[in-house]
């Protein structure tokens, strides 16, 4: 079954999938939000925080920074092994998984030195060069005068269902492809169709005495016309059969392609788990 890449950049991918059931594509779409692991700061140890931000706010801002995780997915322990493990326990080697560590440390040590400065995500020093802020220009905390911030942040792999900071995808949508409109002649005759096209020139037009879809219109525009302008007159959108557009955009921690691959893998793993569970229940 062919999949055609319509657009691709590191952070964005758009696929045309032919012959795949909507349920499968939707499972992959949801998995790219919920099940694909990525790195994010989970704990911070505050040595000193003179800034105007509370420790909690600082922790939140640090957690929101996307960290590159392409290599980290193989090199660090999976979320299941580290979810209930604090950095202290990890340091005492109570919770490593197959020799892989749970946490990577990032250090932030900045002072204003009498000026008014802003500390950026680029000032974070990382223990592992593979896990670093994907964007260096994110402001973390403002400092003034003699203020100083010294923080050690512990990042680990996690999944989006635990917290939104571990969601690699910002957008993941499955869209049907709009082909045309169908009209019930009994509900909407020639006169009514003409009126509809006149009221809704953005989405509809008359061609050869029939109501047709205007080129370049969107489904939301058409549905607006159907529901609010030509209300209840038997007009329905018609979609291409068995063809969907799957679009994924990421926050920069993983590439869009990698996110899709990991999402598909997560769905397959879940199906395998279900299969073995059912087989053991039978036997």
């Amino acid at each position: 079954m062919p999949i055609q890449i319509l657009e691709e950049s590191p952070r964005r991918i758009k696929l045309l999938a032919k012959g795949y059931p909507l349920a499968v594509l939707n499972a992959i779409r949801r998995a790219s939000f919920e099940l694909v692991p990525k790195m994010a700061v989970d704990f911070i140890a505050v040595d000193r925080n003179d800034s105007t931000l509370f420790n909690e706010v600082l922790a939140h801002r640090l957690a929101m920074i996307p960290l590159t995780s392409e290599e980290a997915l193989e090199r660090y322990a999976p979320p299941e092994a580290c979810g209930d493990c604090t950095p202290e326990e990890a340091e005492a080697e109570k919770c490593s998984h197959e020799g892989k560590p749970c946490y990577v440390r990032l250090f932030l040590d900045a002072s204003a030195d009498g000026k008014q400065v802003i500390v950026y995500s680029g000032d974070l020093k990382t223990e592992d060069p593979d896990v670093r802020p994907a964007v260096d220009a994110i402001p973390v905390v403002p400092l003034i005068g003699e203020q100083r911030v010294k923080v050690t942040a512990y990042a680990r792999l996690g999944r989006g269902r635990e917290h939104a900071k571990w969601m690699p995808a910002t957008v993941a949508v499955v869209m049907p492809i709009l082909k045309g409109v169908s009209v019930k002649e009994t509900l909407c005759g020639a006169e009514c169709q003409k009126e509809c096209a006149e009221k809704c020139p953005e989405a509809l037009k008359m061609e050869g005495g029939k109501l047709e879809l205007k080129e370049g219109t969107t489904l939301s525009m058409l549905m607006y016309c159907i529901e609010y302008v030509c209300e209840g007159k038997g007009i329905r959108p018609v979609f291409e059969e068995d063809q969907y557009v799957l679009e994924v955009e990421t926050d920069g921690s993983l590439s869009a392609r990698r996110t899709l691959v990991e999402a598909a893998r997560a769905v397959a793993e879940k199906l395998n788990a279900l299969k073995t569970h059912l087989q053991s229940a039978e036997g």
């Binding site: 105007t52 931000l53 801002r61 929101m64 920074i65 996307p66 994907a134 964007v135 260096d136 220009a137 994110i138 402001p139 905390v141 403002p142 939104a164 969601m167 910002t170 957008v171 955009e249 926050d251 920069g252």
Partner: peptide, 17 residues
């Protein structure tokens, strides 16, 4: 009080834009 790191709704990092 500081500018947000990400879009509140979709989570897109808003920097360096």
């Amino acid at each position: 009080m500081m500018l947000p790191v990400r879009c509140y709704t979709c989570g897109r990092p808003l920097w360096p834009e």
